[in-house]
Design a protein around this nucleic acid. Structure first.
Lengths: 328, 328
DNA sequence: CCGATAATTGGCAGCGCTGTCATAAACAAC
DNA sequence: GTTGTTTATGACAGCGCTGCCAATTATCGG
């Protein structure tokens, strides 16, 4: 194993100078800096994380505990954050939290054995006051993604309203005037603005808001099915259903199949989240893709003291056949 | 921060004795051991990983680099492995490898900065000789999951043949006699035995093997669609299609929809893998669930020197409506 | 009861790095 | 030229733990 002293010998400087170069500290002449860098490259030297952590006050580790909301979400955040970390010499340690009751215990162990330099939290962990308190009490920088809790400051999030508005505009463009909405559950604060966007989209298209075709959902397939039945049983059923998440949209799609309705001919269906399953559905589901990976990268950058790149954080409308009539 | 000396003082023993208790070494009297353990508990002491790693030869870290085959697979392995690690004081560090070309470089960095005690590899990384060589050259214990490469010994895997045989038995039980099979791509060694199981199932049910209803697939939706078209265009089309993975089964399902065929009335469809999308499909897809999480846990146990629990490693037939006629 | 052996415990160096402080060299101001 | 100030570099302790070895105490056979 190559150590810092090997590099120092080869470069003809002291250990300390090598350390300064590695940590980008000032007070090193450019010529010396280069000599050290080429010695590092020649020997393939990599600083030992454990030693750096023990000697200094940084661990070069970011903790990422998660409780499984959805595999795709977890890995997308992981991908974004881990890449951002890697580019800066950091490592991301993910730790599954099976039961929310164990969260504090597990995170406590993570903090005290690994001494991470920061933490990234996603829902539902990002919404648990005890967990937030614990991390702040440990003095660790924390970035919470998409979880907002009364009295706990701002979380990193993107506003869903505008893209929801765009979805309604898209449906209106396809000729729909009766556009139903399946609402998110009340406790889900992030998603609440999807309803605001729906309303904004209606008024932009000059369509009157009709409370009769707005029903409550619970973000699961069953509630989507129930909502779709309610809507399609109306004397004057909607010609388009915009569900506030994909699971409910897939539920609505299932009801349409059961009733032998043509999608999008008889009823167009749109969702929100772009689950992997949505691309496989028949017909493939029009939905909204969140920039999840970019969110993860952004969270990591904030922790590492960089300015986040807000421009990358934009939703994307994914138009598929569940709203696009083949003739269009 | 509580250190080992604090515990030593409180327990009235030397640092070294505390270390012995923590590492479960011999030569400590039960009474002393208990005294130390209660001091640890009272102070909430947790050994500092970095210090342990620097002083000893263990890092208590298992590396898990991955290149995204599917989010669900990656996280299931992660969950199983991370839990097994945690129960034994280890931590799992996952590292995404965006491009396979960078794999060696990224894994090299992981090894030399973190000095993990072992590595877990899943496909496709588990099948790259350069990566395997690299890890073995570093002297790290390695468990490869489900990837087998000529000349590189055995990987951790479960035989798919028996469950494929069961699937055919299930279809035969539903009255099918013409059961088509969409084969896995030739290079995918693990899946090859699915075909063997298919053949075994046929002969067990007393059905003659008909090469005319076995077509090649490429494990993606498009090849599933193509295969289904070929099969359904036959003068005497099959009444059931068993695809060797879910993506191809979903492709077949899509073709059935396009042709307004009733599933499973006109044609039953079954897959293999239990993708999340398969439960959301219409009709929900009959498939095979692999014990992925158990595989991850098993891999970790092997690395940590325990006997793997083979009993937990069994496939599961997931029967859903794509093969179960409502009347049945 | 004695020496021999085994079990138990402690002392201390040192893992590879960074923080602190000392020192040397370069430069500025007068 | 002298003093003060800044810049560049090195020496060395020590982070918290484990490995090695020594010291001490218990156990045993005869």
């Amino acid at each position: 194993m190559v150590t810092i002293t090997d590099v120092a010998h080869r470069a003809g400087v002291s250990m300390k100078t090598v350390s300064r170069v590695l940590n980008n500290e000032a007070h090193v002449r450019p010529a010396v800096r280069e000599k050290v860098q080429s010695a590092v490259a020649a020997l393939g030297y990599r600083p030992n994380l454990a030693a750096r952590q023990l000697a200094g006050h940084k661990s070069f580790i970011i903790g990422y505990p998660f409780n499984n909301p959805s595999a795709a979400y977890v890995t997308d955040i992981l991908l974004g954050a881990a890449r951002a970390c890697r580019d800066r010499g950091y490592h991301l340690v993910s730790e599954p939290v099976d039961l929310l009751e164990n969260a504090v215990e597990i995170i406590d162990r993570l903090i005290s054995t690994l001494r991470p330099d920061g933490m990234i939290l996603i829902p539902p962990l990002a919404e648990i006051p005890a967990v937030i308190d614990q991390i702040e009490k440990a003095g660790l920088p924390l970035v919470r993604i998409a979880g907002s809790v009364e009295g706990y400051g701002e979380a990193l999030r993107i506003d869903d309203a505008d893209i929801a508005r765009q979805m309604v505009a898209h449906l209106a463009e396809q000729g729909h005037r009766r556009i139903a909405f399946i609402r998110p559950p009340a406790h889900h604060s992030q998603a609440a603005s999807r309803f605001d966007g729906y309303c904004a989209g209606l008024s932009a298209a000059g369509i009157a808001f009709d409370p009769g075709i707005v029903v409550d959902g619970a973000f699961d397939v069953e509630s989507g099915m129930a909502a779709a039945r309610t809507l399609l049983d109306l004397p004057e059923p909607p010609t388009a259903i915009f569900a506030s998440n994909d699971q409910m949209a897939l539920g609505a799609l299932r009801v349409a199949h059961q009733r032998k309705l043509d999608v999008p001919g008889d009823v167009a269906i749109a969702g929100f989240d772009d689950l992997p399953a949505s691309a496989f559905a028949w017909p493939p589901l029009t939905t909204v893709r969140q920039p999840i990976e970019a969110l993860g990268a952004c969270a990591a950058r904030i922790l590492l003291g960089e300015a986040p790149d807000d421009a990358a954080l934009t939703h994307q409308l994914i138009l598929r056949e569940s709203t696009l009539s083949p003739t269009a």
